[in-house]
Computed example of a mutant assay.
Amino acid sequence: MDILLPVLFALGAALSNALATVLQRKAALTVPRSDKLRAGLMLDLLRRRVWLAGIAAVIAAALCQAVALATGPLTVVQPLLVLELPFTLVIGTLLLRGRLSRAGWAAVCAVVAGLAVALGAASPEGNRTHVPMDLWIPALAVCVAAIAGLVLTGIRRPEGRGRAACFGLATAVAYAVTAALMKASMHTLDDDGVVAFLTAWQTYGFALFGVSALFFLENAMQAGPLVASQPAITLGDASVSLALGVTIYAEYVRGGWWLLPQLLGVALIVAGVSALSRVPLARTLTGDDRHAAGAGTA
């Protein structure tokens, strides 16, 4: 199977999402700040070309991810989106005149190297185009139950790292399900056309889970520091996507002694993402300034 095309489009999705984050944050920094909701906020943003460019980048990211999922395994596409955080920080240093220290750059390199090692050792294969309902039902039931449990646990916890991690994991599960359903709907579009795509339940399913993911993401960012939510989101999405790819799309990853370099790659990713989420620039780009006080620098 030609893996180059989905890899390129997955990288394009990660890069476009990163660019969108930076552009939207840059636009947000140019409008008057307020602790209260402002009815005119969207009107202010709509007048700014940089914000509109960010929206265009979001659309480009969605299209790239859709093509990547339609042409490649879920177990390849979603893990590559881990690169969104390093891309965001690198672009942020250029467009926002931020600064990434040597430790920050080392963390970026750790994420990139870890991802290369993990995916190279796993060598994911398989690209099933049709998933029967007897696989969808238990998979969705487990994921919905996991999301419900994480949200309920998060609600019961006070504001802080624990609550942010719970909502971050809920976001990750919702993102992974969104990707799995999007992959199915894109195959429907490719095989049966637009009408079939618009009438497929998977199309409305990925839209529902996608909106839910954004809602959980906002709560994760407000609940506690980025260092608690970002690793949960980034690593959780990749892990759940891997599980869904193997169980419902019959994708295959190498086992045996190959597990050792895979675990090494995962360890590098975990260390890199955790370090990057502590970088002051990362908190600036995500609007996590409330929790910046007292945090260390990378």
Results as ranks from 00 to 15, higher is better:
Asp288Glu: 09
Arg48Trp: 07
Gly54Ala: 10
Phe206Leu: 05
Ala61Ser: 15
Lys26Phe: 04
Asn17Asp: 15
Val246His: 02
Val67Met: 03
Val112Tyr: 02
Asp237Leu: 10
Ala213Ser: 12
Ala170Gly: 09
Ala228Phe: 00
Met186Trp: 10
Arg25Pro: 04
Ala68Tyr: 07
Ala122Met: 08
Leu217Gly: 10
Ala122Trp: 02
Leu268His: 10
Leu208Tyr: 09
Thr30Arg: 15
Ala184Leu: 10
Val108Leu: 03
Leu150Gln: 07
Phe216His: 12
Ala20Gly: 01
Ala39Pro: 08
Thr234Met: 11
His291Ile: 00
Asp288Pro: 06
Leu94Ile: 14
Gln78Ile: 04
Gly149Pro: 00
Ala174His: 05
Ile59Thr: 13
Ala243Arg: 08
Ala298Lys: 06
Phe216Leu: 04
Gln78Ala: 10
Arg161Thr: 13
Arg48Leu: 15
Leu89Thr: 01
Asp289Ser: 15
Thr284Glu: 14
Ala13Asp: 04
Val108Gln: 04
Lys36Val: 10
Leu181Asn: 13
Gly256Val: 10
Gly149Arg: 11
Val240Ala: 08
Pro73Asp: 04
Leu43Arg: 15
Leu264Arg: 07
Gln78Pro: 00
Pro79Asp: 05
Ala146Gly: 09
Val211Tyr: 03
Thr203Cys: 03
Leu150Ala: 12
Ala10Lys: 03
Leu4Ser: 14
Thr129Ser: 13
Leu63Gln: 09
Pro231Ala: 02
Gly236Tyr: 01
Glu125Pro: 05
Ser239Pro: 04
Gly160Glu: 06
Gly245Pro: 07
Thr21Asp: 07
Ser16Gly: 13
Gly236Trp: 01
Leu244His: 12
Ala170Glu: 02
Asp237Ser: 14
Pro225Ser: 00
Asp2Ser: 14
Ile3Val: 15
Arg156Gly: 15
Ala243Phe: 14
Ile248Phe: 09
Asp191His: 15
Gly205Trp: 03
Leu152Lys: 14
Leu15Tyr: 00
Glu251Val: 09
Leu15Phe: 05
Pro32Leu: 08
Thr286Gly: 01
Ala165Val: 09
Ala27Tyr: 03
Ala62Asp: 12
Pro32Thr: 09
Leu15His: 00
Ile269Asp: 00
Gly98Lys: 11
Asp35Cys: 10
Phe197Trp: 09
Gly193Thr: 03
Ala118Lys: 05
Leu94His: 10
Asp35Glu: 14
Leu268Asn: 07
Ala164Tyr: 09
Arg47Asn: 11
Val211Asn: 10
Gly272Met: 04
Leu208Cys: 12
Phe206Asp: 09
Leu45Met: 13
Leu281His: 11
Arg128Asn: 11
Ala10Phe: 03
His187Trp: 01
Ala170Pro: 02
Leu5Pro: 08
His291Cys: 01
Thr171Asp: 08
Leu81His: 02
Ala141Thr: 14
Pro73Ser: 11
Leu29Arg: 13
Thr171Met: 01
Gly12Gln: 04
Ala146Gln: 06
Ser185Tyr: 04
